[in-house]
């Protein structure tokens, strides 16, 4: 559950089109400590595949993905 995860940074990516959700997450990942979590809310359905593949490239992890109506909520954990 979302309550179990301690969120260090909230990102509002609603309305942004590809590749901007990925770019914003990448830009902000260093703002949380290693092991920290970004909660990013996007509306672009493309980010469903993009953000997990970005995480795999950069060695980070999407620990959880939720969908609430049109919103997609990612919990991205910084691993390094």
């Amino acid at each position: 559950m979302a309550e179990d995860l301690k969120v260090d940074l909230e990102l509002d990516l609603k309305g942004l089109l590809c590749p901007l959700p990925m770019v914003r997450v990448s830009q902000n990942i260093t703002k949380v400590p290693v092991g920290g979590i970004i909660r990013a809310v996007a509306t672009d359905l493309g980010s469903l595949a993009d953000i997990p593949s970005w995480a795999r490239t950069t060695g980070n992890e999407v620990v959880k993905t939720e969908r609430v109506d049109k919103e997609i909520i990612f919990y991205v954990k910084r691993l390094k």
Binding site: P19, M22, S53, W54, R56, T57, T58
Partner: peptide, 16 residues
């Protein structure tokens, strides 16, 4: 760096 990450993500998506 950012372009490398985006390119890397695209390649990963292709591989898996």
């Amino acid at each position: 760096q950012i372009l490398a990450e985006l390119a890397g993500a695209a390649v990963i998506k292709g591989e898996s």
